[in-house]
Design a protein around this nucleic acid. Structure first.
Lengths: 183, 183, 183, 183
DNA sequence: CATGAATGAGGCTTCATTCAT
DNA sequence: AATGAATGAAGCCTCATTCAT
């Protein structure tokens, strides 16, 4: 409620840190040293900690932004008329829009981290809704669940990043998955 | 060629180290401490370094070994009669046989380390042969190349590891990919 | 003397900082972060530094204040009629009144910081007077000096804090010291 | 059982680290930086961690040694004939023998650390036995328990250290406590 | 040759102090 | 004058690699 707006310089720094973190995490995953992020943002390490209490929190914040944007897009899809088209359009733009990179792999790692479960869950819910609507409409195979879908996507996007695929290869490769999802 | 043959005990140690490394890397990825591998192999850390100049080299050697084994299986498939069946059988055993785990994900990271390019190429060639035979036989979609296939598999195996999928989920998820590969 | 009088708001801030520091130091010792004190005082960290050049100086000032208050109590005791009763009453209220906590332990550490030597000396003098009057009155053993007494008290209060003694244990334990002081 | 003896150089280093730790902790308490201890021992920080997994463990080891020696002395006292004499003799030698310094204060801090509870408990038990035997023999006041005694001793020894008391003052001051303990 | 002990750089985090707003 | 953001030096700990035994 009473969150007072940050001072101009503080907000600028916070944004620079977040931007640097997003870029670095997207490129190399959570293993990027925090000092490296601070250096890229042009601030001291202490400044990073002023805005984000732990490295994990910074990572979460970097992800949340990305995740929230994706959630927004998924919900736009839910407003549309054709469930199957909305589902596949969303998946395509996740790829082409650069929505997922190396960072989300770490974010959704082994046990499912805690801090960013909220936003991640919202995204999952939105995609899950897209999925089940498409399944009910007979556009997507009915034998998979949202977890399965997310795993598949995750693996694909990691591979995209690891192999540095250009858009042509990405499209060709993603087509395999999309076709596998169809009935 | 000019490699002087190792003494019996030295060779035994080398093999124990390699076996321990394979097991450890497969289970936890490249982040396993080298001391842990030495401990599992029942040797000192120095012994590991006698046989492998760096941890990276050990990792590469462990991968090469696995890759070589997979290459052998792929070639067995090439000897069979039904190209489509051989192709899908090979893919299935890669998964179910635990042929690729977390380690290969690390191994085929960003730049593609040079040390194990040779063996990887051989495996690629073997799988590529399986693929193109299956494509010529009309069992697999013709619009993808070996690189695309490998990327897809890589992504899948990474997801398997990251999400700790049980065999039920693995099967369900892999089915999407296999079906996507069919015509 | 040449201290220009502070503006009203500045003086109020100084006092709030001092009060917060006393409370915080008493509760947790010198290890309380300065930011925490500033927060409790409802001011910025910079304001603390406007009034006290270093954390050490703030700590000293906080101690001085407490010490001065204790000195006042000791002098009240000196005004009384029964030297022995006054002596033991003062000691008891040091304990029960919570006059000394973790902070004084830190304050009187190894080298005895110089800043608060003056006020400490005044307190020592007052307690010393209480002591020697009680000794002359035959109520306290004659073979100890004020330094000895202060050391004993210091050790006791530290133990009270470290062990988190409740009042029952504190009383039982303090009785040993009080009885040891009697003839 | 099968604890193999350490290599000569390792044992020497372990002992140097332990000695440095004991000296440093005794002098300044647990707050001494671990790097400082490593430096004093003439080893790298990593070497300290080879022998002691955490700073707390090193601290515990430093204390344990000291505590075990004290326990041994207490048990010698239990073998004697005169309970009162044994009790007071033990307390005196704790002081004069330099058995307790700044470090034990930290060791027996607030909640009672866990790692060294075993040895500390043994010492407590031994002193407790000395105490209750002396109480049954009518040599020590019956209204205090072992915890009270330990708190008193702890506070005293801390004060001894903080004030840098020479043996004359120490004796004079300790007499107050010893006399307070007598009936 | 093998061992495993030692090294030391580097990672995360805290906090006294300074300084732009 | 006040604010609170930024700094950067430590502090604890891990682990790849080297080296004495």
């Amino acid at each position: 409620m009473t969150e007072r707006p940050l001072r101009a310089d503080a907000r600028r720094n916070r944004e620079r840190v977040l931007a640097a973190a997003q870029e670095a995490f997207a490129a190399e995953g959570i293993s990027v040293p925090l000092d490296e992020i601070a250096r890229r943002a042009g601030v001291g390490a202490g400044t990073v900690y002023r805005h984000f209490p732990t490295k994990e929190a910074l990572f979460a914040a970097a992800i949340v932004d990305r995740v929230d944007r994706m959630t927004g897009r998924a919900r736009e899809g839910l407003a549309g008329a054709d469930p199957g088209a909305a589902f596949f359009a969303f998946l395509r733009q996740m790829d082409s829009g650069g929505g997922v990179k190396r960072d989300l792999a770490d974010a959704l790692g082994p046990q499912g981290a805690h801090t960013y479960e909220g936003p991640t869950r919202e995204l999952q819910a939105a995609i899950g809704e897209l999925l089940s609507r498409a399944q009910r409409a007979g556009a997507v195979r009915p034998d998979i669940g949202i977890d399965d879908l997310l795993s598949i996507l995750k693996g694909f996007f990691i591979a995209v990043h690891m192999d540095g695929m250009d858009s042509a290869r990405r499209e060709r490769t993603f087509a395999v998955i999309l076709d596998g999802l169809r009935i």
